[in-house]
Write a protein that binds this DNA or RNA. Structure first.
Length: 1195
RNA sequence: GCCGUGGUGGUGGAAUUGGUAGACACGCAGGACUUAAAAUCCUGUGAUACUCAAAUAUCGUGCGGGUUCGAUUCCCGCCCGCGGUACCA
């Protein structure tokens, strides 16, 4: 009887489904075991061969644990919200729900084919309201909670409010940016003000963060949609833009997330990555005063700029700074218009005047611009008073509303300009004495208030190196950039800031070139007053520490490079001569050139300098975390809606606010789920808002238009599996108490610092509120490697002028050698012998006449040379013609006054060149769907049919064919390199597919997909089958196995059980192969050997084993059988064949009894001819005898 | 850049605690069966040198050093691939 996998697999799939073989229920009498897979995002491309790698591994483990007697929870579901479905919706108009449902159906089909033992009754889908109701519910809990640092756990916000009501803001409760208040004051605060204060505590809170804004697409882009500062789709410019967004206060959990790692059975690598991500470092905040002497900024001595007294300045400046870094959207827009003297006058923003902070002020003319409808309401309440006071100091105030700013910024700006035009220099009324106001300034008030305030604060982990700090570096987006920049440096700084703005954080840190710019200002070393120049550079990020560093070139590699490039001094401060081999960053050595620190060891110096810093009040010790609070808003449609309305218009009880609009108010639990509305269009809602803004009803109701990010639903799904259909709770308490947490979690290492940190935080949070009994969600973690794809690459020819000029001039240079000159400026791109000049333009498809006319008028006067206008598109396609043309002109007399304009390009279409030509053209690589490619040859017909853009494409072929390049990389839809398991299963069956994936190599290792070796696994299954059946049929006997046959069995039992526990599945498959090979050779078809072997193999190949189990006459399922016992007695050996090494090199083998003593062994071995050959009879220097391992003779 | 991880025959990989490098499988070559092919089975297969052959020697785990009787395994310094780098999932 032949092995017919199709029949067998169909048959048992049905039986399992009918019998509910894999359905589990909570059973307090059986030990539980929870085996979890990272759930997939159901992409339109379907499951690819990389997904099942982890699923097969976990399925084997789950099945193994069941055979070992555990009650195993092994569920599957879908992370169904996500960008791809939304992108598809934008392109095609298909609702993401439809796309997603289709994809899920396909995934389910594919998964079922592979024979997984999932309990499908527990399936969850994050995009279904039944599920996201609870995601929203948890969000409400986060919003309604704060982190009590004293209790070191999250608590409901009510406990905080109670504390405020009792004692006001106590020292323990102080948070950055929260102004002190008493209990009485708290009670007197408006609802809005209270809400604003509480926002500093909530675990889900509103704040500001930069996003990738693409004006042309009118949308916010994900980081991987941005390449080189341009949008990946369309190549439009992308800018960083600040927006108000939701955040999760994960930083409150940083320490617990770190400590928790010690209790987890994860790989060291994984723990290390999380530790480094959280990045706890102990150091100090140190304030560097700004230098007065070296700055030449305006107004230092002019009374006109003294706008408040020193005490008020000091309290106001913190507010001002805070506001500067967190402008409202309207303020940000206005600032864009006012900054950099765009109105002709210098404006400052968030500038303290008297006891107030002006939004924008032009000190020169005394004009204040106020934007209303913003967060700091305390100012609003004093509008009247404020205007009066400001007038008294000689200021005029103009006000605009948010609506005016959003509506028409141009009108606002021209109004400001008009007002400025009517004003003269600021007149200080006589009754005000500016000098009086500025009394005491020389000690505490800022030199250089005009340059941003008192001091520059840095965070450093190496305060001991402060005497080696020869310059400071601030992030280009640092809040003080504008004020630190001197007029002379302004242009350069603006240019640099613009450059940095176009780059992502990753690009900035990757940059190998050293870039930066001098601000023109200086700080002073707080210990010895040495002036230190302040630079800005992209390698300093605003989000880390204070966004400013003291650079110590002697002790930091990056700082050193920077110093070299900008010619800054290096002061050696640590003598490492007594530590040879210590690297520059090791904390070893003796301090030198460091005043009071001289002679101290680095570790002691750190302590000493910290004490001194605190004593002198120039800074304090501080623990800093690299980890930031987690951005939780996405300007997208396909995500969970926030259960939030904005008061007061839309929420009862908020009538008392008068005008303010942006106080978030949570929905009540019974209003959940807040279901995603239908929208008229999936395109962005305009002005950076999500497509939800396209729903009129939604906007009218005052709902938040952003949605939650991808990780919202996936941060807690493993809890829902415990009680997937519960309509009343996210999961019932008794079920959570039974299943507790995940025992083993299979997933990719790519989630190390995203999903795995967020989930841990959510779990800890739910634990704090008493909803889950465990503090950690995933006890053991297995990282399966990725199966990489083999992508195919097309080479698209660039038609950018600069690329083409370079390429074409290189071509010409080959022919004319040194006669070619490339011109950097003007209209001429290339000239040859000054006889022929060539201008190269990228033709945009319109205005051909315009190109022609400008060209003629420009070159008409050229009487002694030929001027040629070529279009990039045309030259690339027919370079021979153009070179011939040039050649003809050079050789003839045509050149005098000859003007040539290229004919209009036939079409503006992408041009691709075959691999082999790619170096001959200016090309950029582009992925192509591997389904359109066979053996690296592109199917042109199908390619052209695949999209509108492709239909227009042109090709440069090699021998009549288009050869693609290839690359091994992540298998993903966006790289068009997905291989699905379906074909493999059709051809070889699911058992074979499972075993082959395992056989490929260790699961934690990545490897490119290649099914070349699959026939080996297939042969194994057939060989196994043939132990039971031959041509004549069933051949299993009840005969007693031989000792050797038992040995084969028990060797295998031991090996398989050991390897499964260690998750070395690839060697399991090898051992099965060895066992089958040995039994085949021994012609063994004995039940006593084969039956246990069937059970051993069952977790790997569930179908064939079930069939054989039933054929052996068993009634139940093999997957519910008992795991075979290993018996040592069959493996006991009395002899071992020792390798005999001479000087560590194996030269001979000899069989010796295992209980032989060293002396006997020595005598015997040294007498061997194969040994005396090397020793020449002499006594060896050494004789090494490792029992059961090796014998080594040293001569 | 930073963090993590990997590099072994023509290929995927094995070697579990420092102890016979290349298990198992693919591929390839030769042979058997067959009219033939497929399938199946058998033999060989790291490189080099020598040899009719058997055998033997030298080299060999990304590169360069080191520790050790002995290193794929431990240490130091490099090179390259892959994953992550906070809005792909």
């Amino acid at each position: 009887m032949e092995f017919n996998f199709k029949e067998i697999e169909d048959k048992w799939k049905k039986v399992w489904a009918k019998n509910g073989t894999y359905t589990v229920t909570e059973d307090p009498n059986t030990p539980k075991y929870y085996v979890l897979d990272m759930f997939p995002y159901p992409s339109g491309a379907g499951l690819h061969v990389g997904h099942p790698l982890g699923y097969v591994a976990s399925d084997i483990y789950a099945r193994y644990k069941r055979l070992k007697g555990f009650n195993v929870l092994h569920p599957m579901g879908y992370d169904a919200f996500g960008l791809p479905a939304e992108q598809y919706a934008i392109e095609t108009g298909t609702h993401p729900a439809v796309t997603t449902e289709k994809a899920i159906k396909r995934y389910k089909e594919q998964l079922d084919k592979i024979g997984f033992s999932y309990d499908w009754s527990r399936q969850v889908v994050t995009a279904e309201p039944d599920y996201y109701k609870w995601t929203q519910w948890i969000f409400l809990k986060l919003f309604g909670s704060w982190y009590n640092r004293e209790a070191n756990k999250a608590e409901l916000i009510e406990t905080l409010v109670a504390k405020f009501e009792a004692n006001g803001l106590s020292k323990e409760l102080a948070r950055e940016g929260v102004e002190a208040f008493t209990a009485e004051q708290w009670k007197g605060f408006s609802k809005a003000k209270q809400s604003q204060v509480l926002m500093n505590y909530r675990l889900a809170f509103l704040s500001y963060a930069e996003v990738n804004w693409c004006e042309a697409l009118g949308t916010v882009l994900a980081n991987d949609e941005v390449k080189d500062g341009k949008s990946e789709r369309g190549g439009h410019p992308v800018e960083r833009r600040k927006m108000r967004q939701w955040f999760l206060r994960i930083t409150e959990y940083s320490d617990r997330l770190l400590d928790g790692l010690n209790t987890l059975d994860w790989s060291d690598a994984m723990k290390e990555m999380q530790r480094n991500w959280i990045g706890r470092s102990e150091g100090a905040l140190i304030k560097f005063d700004l230098s007065q002497t070296l700055s030449e900024g305006e107004g230092l001595n002019s009374p006109r700029y003294h706008t408040t007294d020193s005490q008020t300045w000091n309290t106001s400046i913190d507010f001002a700074k805070e506001h500067r870094s967190n402008p409202t959207e309207a303020e940000a827009i206005v600032w864009e218009q006012l900054r950099a003297k765009r109105t002709g006058y210098k404006f400052r923003r968030q500038h303290p005047i008297d006891q107030f902070i002006a939004d924008f002020v032009c000190l020169e003319r005394g004009l204040i611009v106020e934007i209303d409808g913003k967060i700091h309401l305390e100012q609003k309440e004093n509008d009247q008073l404020r205007t009066e006071v400001l007038n008294r100091y000689g200021f005029t105030v103009v006000r605009f509303t948010n609506e005016q700013v959003f509506g028409n910024i141009d009108t606002v700006v021209s109004k400001i300009k008009e007002t400025l035009a009517t004003m003269t220099e600021r007149v200080i009324p006589s009754e005000v004495d500016d000098n009086e106001l500025s009394e005491g300034q020389n000690s505490s008030l800022p030199f250089g208030e005009g340059r941003g305030g008192v001091s520059l604060e840095v965070f450093t982990t190496r305060p001991d190196t402060i005497f080696g700090a020869t310059f400071m570096v601030i992030a280009p987006e640092h809040e003080l950039v504008d004020s630190l920049t001197t007029p002379e440096q302004k242009e350069a700084v603006d240019k640099y800031v613009a450059y940095v703005k176009s780059r992502t954080d990753v690009e900035r840190q990757q940059e190998k070139r050293v870039t930066g710019e001098f601000t023109g200002s200086y700080a002073v070393n707080p210990f010895n007053g040495t002036p230190i120049p302040i630079y800005m550079a992209e390698y300093v990020l605003a989000g880390y520490g204070t966004g400013a560093i003291m650079a110590v070139p002697a002790d930091d590699e990056r700082d050193r490079k920077f110093a070299e490039k900008f010619g800054l001094p290096v002061i050696e401060i640590i003598d490492k001569s007594m530590y040879p081999g210590a690297t520059i960053e090791d904390k070893k050595g003796k301090m030198i050139n460091s005043e009071f620190l001289n002679g101290l060891e680095v570790v002691d110096a750190i302590k000493a300098v910290l004490d001194e810093v605190e004593k002198r009040g120039i800074g304090q010790r501080k623990v800093n975390y690299k980890q930031r609070d987690a951005g939780y808003s996405r300007q997208r449609y396909w995500g969970e809606p926030f259960p939030i309305k904005y008061g007061p218009k839309h929420v009862e009880g908020f009538e008392d606010l008068g005008g303010a609009e942006d106080i978030p108010v949570p929905l009540s639990e019974d209003q959940l789920p807040l279901v995603l509305p239908e929208v008229s269009s999936f395109k962005p809602g305009g002005d950076g808002r999500s497509p939800l803004a396209n729903s009129e009803a939604w906007v009218k109701a005052g709902y938040e238009t952003d949605t939650m990010p991808g990780y919202a639903g996936s941060s807690w799904y493993f809890l829902r599996y415990m009680d997937a259909k519960n309509p009343n709770e996210f999961a019932a308490k008794d079920k959570i108490d039974y299943w507790k947490n995940v025992d083993i979690y299979f997933g990719g290492a790519e989630h190390a610092v995203g999903h795995l940190l967020y989930s841990r935080m959510w779990h800890k949070f739910l634990h704090d509120l008493g909803y889950v009994p465990t503090d950690e969600p995933f006890q053991k973690m297995v990282n399966q490697g990725m199966i990489q794809g083999r992508s195919n690459i097309l080479y698209r020819v660039s038609e950018l002028e600069k690329d083409v000029v370079k390429w074409f001039s290189d071509l010409l240079r080959k022919k004319y050698k040194k006669r070619i000159i490339i011109s950097e400026q003007g209209n001429i791109d290339i000239s040859i012998d000054d006889k022929v000049v060539i201008e190269i333009k990228r033709f945009d498809g319109y205005n051909y006449r315009m190109y022609q006319d400008t060209f003629y008028s420009r070159f008409r006067h050229y009487t002694s040379k030929a001027a040629l206008l070529f279009f990039t598109n045309n030259i690339i396609r027919d370079s021979k013609f153009y070179i011939n043309l040039i050649d003809t002109i050079l050789k003839s007399s045509l050149s005098d006054g000859y003007l040539f304009v290229d004919t209009k390009p036939q079409k503006v279409a992408p041009l691709y060149v075959s691999n082999g030509f790619k170096d001959k053209f200016p090309c950029s690589p582009k992925h192509v769907d591997i389904n359109l490619v066979h053996n690296d040859i592109l199917n042109l017909k199908e390619f052209k049919r695949s999209s509108i853009e492709n239909r227009e494409s042109d090709f440069v072929l090699y021998k009549g064919k288009y050869y693609c390049g290839y690359e091994v990389e992540k298998m993903s839809k966006s790289k068009y390199n997905v291989v699905t398991p379906d074909d493999v299963i059709d051809k070889y069956g699911a058992d074979c597919f499972r075993m082959f994936e395992m056989f490929l190599g260790p699961i934690e290792q990545s490897k490119p997909w290649d099914d070349k070796g699959i026939s080996g696994t297939y042969n194994f299954l057939r060989k196994f089958w043939r132990l039971f059946y031959d041509d004549k049929g069933w051949k299993v006997t009840d005969a007693e196995p031989t000792k050797e046959e038992y040995k084969v069995l028990h060797k295998t039992i031991k090996k398989i059980a050991d390897d499964i526990e260690r998750l070395n599945y690839n060697t399991c498959v090898s051992s099965f192969m060895i066992a089958v090979n040995e039994l085949t050779s021994a012609n063994c078809s004995k039940r006593k050997v084969l039956e246990p072997l069937v059970i051993l193999l069952a977790p790997f190949a569930p179908f064939i084993t079930e069939e054989l189990w039933s054929a052996l006459g068993n009634t139940g399922s093999v997957h519910q059988a008992a795991y075979p016992k290993f018996e040592e007695q069959y493996l006991v050996e009395s002899e071992f064949e020792y390798p005999i090494s001479i000087n560590g090199k194996t030269r001979a083998q000899v069989k010796l009894a295992l209980d032989l003593s060293e002396a006997d062994a020595r005598a015997y071995v040294l007498g061997l001819e194969s040994v005396t050959k090397w020793t020449n009879g002499a006594e060896p220097k050494k004789f090494i005898y490792v029992k059961g391992r090796i014998i080594n003779v040293v001569v």
